[in-house]
Protein backbone atom coordinates (compact mmCIF):
# COMPACT_ATOMS: atom_id res chain seq x y z
CA UNK A 1 0.00 0.00 0.00
CA UNK A 2 1.00 3.52 -0.46
CA UNK A 3 1.19 6.43 1.92
CA UNK A 4 0.61 9.90 0.62
CA UNK A 5 0.73 13.24 2.41
CA UNK A 6 -0.96 14.42 4.52
CA UNK A 7 -0.51 11.47 6.83
CA UNK A 8 -3.31 11.05 9.29
CA UNK A 9 -2.57 10.24 12.89
CA UNK A 10 -3.91 6.75 13.23
CA UNK A 11 -5.24 5.63 16.56
CA UNK A 12 -3.93 2.13 16.14
CA UNK A 13 -4.15 0.11 19.28
CA UNK A 14 -2.75 -3.29 20.03
CA UNK A 15 -3.40 -5.93 17.42
CA UNK A 16 -6.80 -7.59 17.62
CA UNK A 17 -6.96 -11.13 18.79
CA UNK A 18 -6.35 -13.62 16.02
CA UNK A 19 -9.59 -14.29 14.23
CA UNK A 20 -10.83 -17.76 14.92
CA UNK A 21 -11.77 -19.05 11.54
CA UNK A 22 -12.07 -22.73 12.26
CA UNK A 23 -15.81 -22.60 12.86
CA UNK A 24 -16.70 -20.54 9.79
CA UNK A 25 -16.38 -22.18 6.40
CA UNK A 26 -15.40 -19.28 4.08
CA UNK A 27 -13.06 -16.28 4.32
CA UNK A 28 -12.41 -13.06 2.38
CA UNK A 29 -8.71 -12.25 2.00
CA UNK A 30 -7.46 -8.80 1.01
CA UNK A 31 -3.97 -8.76 -0.52
CA UNK A 32 -1.38 -6.01 -0.33
CA UNK A 33 -0.67 -3.90 -3.36
CA UNK A 34 1.60 -0.87 -3.68
CA UNK A 35 -1.08 1.42 -5.04
CA UNK A 36 -4.12 1.60 -2.79
CA UNK A 37 -3.77 4.38 -0.21
CA UNK A 38 -3.79 3.27 3.41
CA UNK A 39 -6.44 5.90 4.13
CA UNK A 40 -8.62 4.50 1.33
CA UNK A 41 -8.29 0.88 2.47
CA UNK A 42 -9.13 1.89 6.03
CA UNK A 43 -12.10 3.91 4.78
CA UNK A 44 -13.41 0.92 2.81
CA UNK A 45 -13.13 -1.41 5.82
CA UNK A 46 -14.93 1.11 8.03
CA UNK A 47 -17.69 2.12 5.64
CA UNK A 48 -18.39 -1.23 3.95
CA UNK A 49 -17.95 -3.66 6.86
CA UNK A 50 -18.88 -1.12 9.55
CA UNK A 51 -15.66 -1.85 11.46
CA UNK A 52 -14.40 0.54 14.14
CA UNK A 53 -11.50 2.82 13.32
CA UNK A 54 -9.05 0.72 15.36
CA UNK A 55 -10.21 -2.59 13.84
CA UNK A 56 -10.11 -1.16 10.30
CA UNK A 57 -6.63 0.27 10.85
CA UNK A 58 -5.23 -2.92 12.33
CA UNK A 59 -6.60 -5.00 9.41
CA UNK A 60 -5.21 -2.44 6.97
CA UNK A 61 -1.77 -2.60 8.62
CA UNK A 62 -1.87 -6.40 8.60
CA UNK A 63 -2.51 -6.33 4.82
CA UNK A 64 0.35 -3.87 4.42
CA UNK A 65 2.87 -5.67 6.62
CA UNK A 66 1.96 -9.35 6.28
CA UNK A 67 0.89 -9.07 2.63
CA UNK A 68 -2.63 -10.33 3.29
CA UNK A 69 -5.36 -10.36 5.88
CA UNK A 70 -8.61 -12.20 6.45
CA UNK A 71 -11.06 -9.32 6.62
CA UNK A 72 -14.39 -11.16 6.76
CA UNK A 73 -15.78 -14.63 7.29
CA UNK A 74 -19.09 -16.35 6.73
CA UNK A 75 -21.18 -18.36 4.31
CA UNK A 76 -20.15 -18.80 0.68
CA UNK A 77 -22.90 -16.40 -0.34
CA UNK A 78 -21.63 -13.70 2.03
CA UNK A 79 -17.96 -13.97 1.05
CA UNK A 80 -18.88 -13.85 -2.66
CA UNK A 81 -20.78 -10.62 -2.07
CA UNK A 82 -18.00 -9.12 0.08
CA UNK A 83 -15.29 -10.04 -2.44
CA UNK A 84 -17.22 -8.40 -5.27
CA UNK A 85 -17.70 -5.30 -3.13
CA UNK A 86 -13.93 -5.16 -2.51
CA UNK A 87 -13.35 -5.42 -6.28
CA UNK A 88 -15.82 -2.62 -6.92
CA UNK A 89 -13.65 -0.47 -4.60
CA UNK A 90 -10.50 -1.60 -6.42
CA UNK A 91 -9.10 -3.65 -3.54
CA UNK A 92 -7.45 -6.93 -4.49
CA UNK A 93 -9.49 -9.61 -2.72
CA UNK A 94 -10.19 -13.32 -3.03
CA UNK A 95 -12.43 -15.76 -1.18
CA UNK A 96 -11.74 -19.36 -0.28
CA UNK A 97 -12.62 -22.08 2.22
CA UNK A 98 -11.26 -21.20 5.64
CA UNK A 99 -9.37 -24.49 5.94
CA UNK A 100 -7.32 -23.90 2.77
CA UNK A 101 -3.82 -22.44 3.08
Amino acid sequence: MSVSTPVRESGVETRNEELTISDVPWVVIVWNDPVNLMSYVSYVFRSYFGYSESKANSLMLEVHEAGRSVVATGSREKVEKDTLAMHSYGLWATFQRADQP
Binding site: I29, T83, H87, W92, T94, F95, Q96, Q100, P101
Partner: peptide
Protein backbone atom coordinates in the same frame (compact mmCIF):
# COMPACT_ATOMS: atom_id res chain seq x y z
CA UNK B 1 -6.05 -5.63 -11.72
CA UNK B 2 -9.46 -3.92 -12.10
CA UNK B 3 -11.22 -7.27 -12.59
CA UNK B 4 -9.15 -9.74 -10.54
CA UNK B 5 -9.79 -13.42 -10.04
CA UNK B 6 -12.10 -13.75 -7.05
CA UNK B 7 -11.55 -17.36 -6.00
CA UNK B 8 -8.32 -18.29 -4.24
CA UNK B 9 -6.51 -21.52 -5.25
Amino acid sequence: RLLPNAVGN
